[in-house]
C-alpha cells in the first residue's frame, strides 16, 4: 500500500489552513466594527476548529461543532442583532482611551503567554495508541456511564433555562 501522494506537504498545508481560519476568524470577530461581521468571524473560527477536530480524527466532534456553532449559536446571535441593533456603528463606538487599550493588551498578552507556555512545555501524556475512534458509540457509552453526572447537570441547566424563558415571556405579556 503506497501512501497518499505528497502527503508530507498536504498535511501541514491542511493544518495551516484550519489554523489560519481559526485565528483569522477570531481576529475578525474581535477587530471589526460591524457586529454582524463579528458573527461571521465567529462562524469562520468555528469552521476552522471543526476542521482541526476532523484533522485529529474526531469527525463526530467536528460535525457537532459546525452544527451547534454555525447552525445554532451564530444564527441565534444574528437573530438577536436583527431585532435589536441599529444599522450603523456610531462614531466613537469601540474606541477607548490609551491606558484602557494598554491594559487590555497586557492582560491579553499575559493570558496568551501563559497558555502558550503551558502548551509548549507542559507535561502532556501521549497515548501510545488511539484511545477510541471518536465515534458516536464511545461518546454515548461515556455519557451514560462515567459522565452521567455531567449529563444530568447539563440537562438540569437546560430545564431551568427553558423554565426561566417561559417565566420571562409570560411576565412580558402583561406589561402595558
Amino acid at each position: 500500500m503506497n501512501p497518499f501522494p505528497a502527503s508530507e506537504y498536504l498535511i501541514p498545508l491542511v493544518f495551516l489552513l484550519f489554523a489560519g481560519a481559526t485565528i483569522g476568524g477570531a481576529l475578525i470577530a474581535v477587530f471589526t466594527k460591524w457586529i454582524i461581521r463579528s458573527v461571521c468571524g465567529l462562524a469562520m473560527a468555528s469552521v476552522g476548529l471543526a476542521g482541526m477536530f476532523y484533522f485529529l480524527h474526531s469527525p463526530f466532534l467536528a460535525m457537532i461543532q459546525i452544527l451547534i456553532y454555525i447552525g445554532a449559536v451564530c444564527i441565534t446571535i444574528v437573530f438577536a442583532i436583527m431585532l435589536a441593533e441599529p444599522d450603523e456603528p456610531q462614531d466613537g463606538y469601540g474606541q477607548h482611551s490609551v491606558p484602557w487599550n494598554l491594559g487590555a493588551g497586557i492582560v491579553a498578552a499575559a493570558v496568551f503567554w501563559g497558555i502558550a507556555r503551558l502548551g509548549v512545555t507542559g507535561d502532556w501524556p501521549t497515548p501510545a495508541v488511539r484511545v477510541s475512534d471518536g465515534g458516536v458509540e464511545m461518546i454515548g457509552v461515556a455519557l451514560l456511564t462515567k459522565q452521567s453526572l455531567a449529563l444530568e447537570i447539563v440537562a438540569l441547566i437546560l430545564l431551568v433555562s427553558i423554565l426561566g424563558a417561559l417565566a420571562v415571556a409570560r411576565k412580558g405579556r402583561h406589561i402595558e
Binding site: 457537532i64 454555525i70 447552525g71 458516536v136
Partner: peptide, 11 residues
C-alpha cells in the same frame, strides 16, 4: 457520522 455531517453542511 454521515447523517450528522449532512445536517452540519445544511446549516
Amino acid at each position: 457520522v454521515g447523517l450528522i455531517a449532512l445536517f452540519a453542511f445544511s446549516s
